[in-house]
Computed example of a mutant assay.
Amino acid sequence: MVVILRSLVSKVVKMSNVLLFFITFSMILLSTIIIFSIERETFPTLFDALWWVMTTVTTVGYGDFYPVTIAGRIFAMFLYIFGIGILGVVIGKIVDSFATIKRLKEEGKLKYTGAGHIVIFGWSKKAEIAIHEIINSDEKIEIVIIDQLAREPFPHDRVIYIQGDPSVENTMMMANLQNAKAAIVFADDTIDNSVLVDGKSLLFVSAVEHYAPDVYTVVEILREDHIKNFKHVNVDEFVLSHEMISRLLVQSTIQNGITDVISQLLSRSIGDDIYEIEKKENWITYKDAVVALMNDGATLIGAGNKLNVNEVLNEKIPNDVCLRIICSKETLEKIISR
């Protein structure tokens, strides 16, 4: 008998999940009908019979219903042996499935199915800072990191890790890049040669433009003479990291404290920030927008990529331009709500 039970359990464990769930469901349904047919007085409705079967196979056993006839008790003993065993295997498989999903997620082997996310190519300290900034900037947006690390580098509910070569189409498909909002490519700090660093970034961004040309791409570049190569593959924006740092250091010596101001504007976690808003219907000229925003406690600093708003106050605001303002988050919410 022990050998038979052991063989039966072994076969049940090796069953496919679909077949096992079907057998379990069928067993519960059939057991409900059988006990209802055997003891009509004890189980007046099919639901009462189902309730007893479920409390039995889950070993809860409330005792509010129980068979009183010999036939009913014999069937109950059958249910104790086989029903509880099968359901135990099912529960074990469910728990194991959750553990498998968690492991695959940590290893970056699960496909991301969301949309409107930001994809970051390569893990580094700069990527970590960028993730913190994105999380502080938007309470809903999700971030996908693509790298070849063994495990996820930044455990967070809104950060998803995809393991693979960032230049391979299958990896970008796993990250659902075609439905992303933007892609950020950071320069690889582990490489000493700036030519190789920019070459690697160019390879990644070229793959992005080929696979998902509608995704907004931002790339960090080390050498200015490489800009033309990135323009050739239609990169939307690029940042010359060495040049920006050098200029900032120089400006800090000329205008003491300028770095504090710039840091405040760039970081969502410190003071007022730069935001984009759409033109209001009653804002005909830039002067209308400047006055209205000033009354709300905000400062209009630019339209699109232009910063000469104060020189064109009487010009009409194009309907499709994005206005850039400096204000607090509370002020922004007040402006948008109107």
Rank of each mutant, 00 (worst) to 15 (best):
K228R: 08
G304Q: 13
S97T: 14
T69C: 07
E243L: 03
R338K: 11
V321M: 07
V185Y: 08
H232F: 15
V3A: 06
D214R: 10
D48S: 06
I101L: 15
A298P: 01
R324M: 11
A303Q: 05
F230K: 06
I94Y: 07
I129V: 09
I221D: 03
G199Y: 11
N234V: 02
T299A: 03
V2W: 02
A180H: 07
A187R: 01
A289G: 04
D138M: 02
F43I: 13
R6E: 08
A175C: 10
C322P: 00
L19W: 08
I184T: 11
A303W: 05
I38N: 15
T253K: 03
F78W: 14
E330Y: 03
I4K: 07
T113C: 05
M172E: 00
T171N: 02
D236K: 10
I35D: 06
L249T: 08
T285L: 10
V239Q: 03
E107P: 04
E315W: 14
I326W: 10
V159R: 12
V290D: 06
F98Y: 15
L265H: 09
K102V: 14
F98H: 11
T42M: 11
E224I: 04
L19E: 12
P318T: 12
S201T: 13
G122T: 00
K93P: 00
I284E: 13
T59D: 09
D288C: 13
Q255W: 01
I160H: 14
I131S: 03
N193Y: 04
Q264R: 15
Q264A: 12
L222S: 08
E107M: 13
R223P: 00
